[in-house]
């Protein structure tokens, strides 16, 4: 049998025969959805990546932040 198919079947049959409740998987899927599809996109952007195009701009911004916060 094709090794890739073997690996696929290994995982497929493994998940299929799992006896731990469906509610566990439901919770995991809900959690991952909340984390990646809601929190990451709408609440947790990477500010420096979003607001600046280059590392040089990011450096300048952070230096400006660091050197003005002390005053």
């Amino acid at each position: 049998m094709n090794p890739l198919k073997k690996v696929f079947l290994f995982y497929y049959e493994g998940f299929k025969s799992m006896t731990v409740g469906k509610s566990l998987w439901l919770i995991i899927l809900i959690k991952l959805f909340i984390m990646f599809a809601i929190l990451k996109i709408f609440f947790f952007p990477n500010l420096l990546k979003r607001n600046f195009d280059s590392d040089s701009d990011r450096s300048n911004y952070v230096i400006e932040q660091l050197t003005t916060k002390s005053k």
């Binding site: 500010l47 420096l48 660091l66």
Partner: peptide
Amino acid sequence: EFEFGTNWSNYSWF
């Protein structure tokens, strides 16, 4: 790690 990028961006860069 999400929070590093949003709430602690100066730190993340530094």
